[in-house]
């Protein structure tokens, strides 16, 4: 009985320490647990894989440094898949720090890994404030909202932007979203009204908000947090950070489940004792 009382009154800092070690140790000594793909991730993969070479894809970066560990692995895996398919990728951001995030991904994948040409095979248009108003704006007249890319080149001079006058001129939209404005706004103001094929990668906490659109067929699949990114890395056969991090993720989850069970037993035991 004293054991359960001890557990019930455990200093929260000890729990923080145990969780910290459960995350830290697998990062130093990976267990290489298998990553099993789920249908929602497979839907994203199939949608991207069915795009033809030369398809114009709009990738919107709606995340910042605080959610970078979750979204960046999926952004990198997505960029690899799109560039392997020889799609033309146009990046933009609805979050101010999304511009930094998109620059990191394009520099690493498009520039260094694939050696692609800026303005021809990919371009980064950067951030515009206004949230859904920007989406509505580019749906009506793209070039009124974006006159230049992040390097100061006129949009009219970019070969990749030939024939792009509205968001409707894109073959696919992908939203990398960590909140508002993000995937929900893209569904509401672009994908649904103009019937543009769309998919999304979101933070885990946003999945419950977005999953009804996936089940309703309004968007093609969803990459759900870090596990979604790891599954996508598995599907494109290029394991990277997300796959590496999943061991720590799994161990921490297991430990939290144990804490919840043990905490509840302790609570029930103490309540019975009081009664």
């Amino acid at each position: 009985m004293k054991f359960w009382e001890f557990i019930g009154s455990l200093d929260r800092r000890i729990i923080f320490l145990i969780i910290g070690l459960a995350v830290f140790i697998p990062l130093l000594a990976p267990l290489k647990l298998p990553v099993i793909t789920t249908p929602t991730t497979e839907d994203v993969y199939n949608a991207i894989d069915s795009l033809e070479a030369g398809s114009k894809v709009l990738v919107s970066f709606e995340y910042g440094p605080s959610t970078q560990p979750e979204i960046e692995p999926m952004a990198i895996a997505l960029a690899r898949h799109l560039f392997r398919k020889k799609c033309e990728v146009v990046g933009m951001a609805l979050w101010p720090d999304g511009q930094f995030m998109s620059t990191l991904v394009f520099d690493r994948i498009a520039d260094k890994e694939f050696g692609l040409t800026w303005g021809k095979e990919y371009v980064n248009l950067g951030f515009r404030p206004g949230g859904e108003a920007v989406i509505k704006g580019i749906a009506r007249e793209f070039r009124a909202n974006y006159t230049q890319d992040v390097r100061g080149n006129s949009v009219n001079d970019l070969p990749i932007m030939e024939g792009v006058y509205s968001v409707k001129d894109f073959d696919f939209i992908f939203s990398l979203s960590a909140g508002y404005p993000g995937t929900v706004e893209w569904v509401l103001y672009a994908a649904d009204p103009y019937k543009i094929p769309m998919s999304s990668g979101t933070t885990a906490i946003q999945v419950n908000e977005v999953i009804p659109y996936v089940k309703g067929g309004q968007i093609y699949g969803i990459l759900a947090g870090m596990s979604g990114a790891a599954e996508y890395e598995t599907l494109i056969a290029t394991p990277d950070d997300a796959t590496k991090f999943m061991d720590a993720q799994s161990i921490a989850h297991l430990l939290i489940v144990v804490f919840i069970v043990v905490g509840n037993i302790s609570y029930i035991v103490q309540r019975r004792k009081q009664n």
């Binding site: 969780i19 910290g20 995350v23 990062l27 605080s66 959610t67 970078q68 560990p69 979750e70 933070t203 885990a204 906490i205 947090g225 870090m226 596990s227 991090f245 720590a248 993720q249 921490a252 989850h253």
Partner: peptide
């Protein structure tokens, strides 16, 4: 899952 991901990062 989201919070653990950030901690991992």
């Amino acid at each position: 899952m989201g919070r653990i991901s950030l901690l991992i990062g």
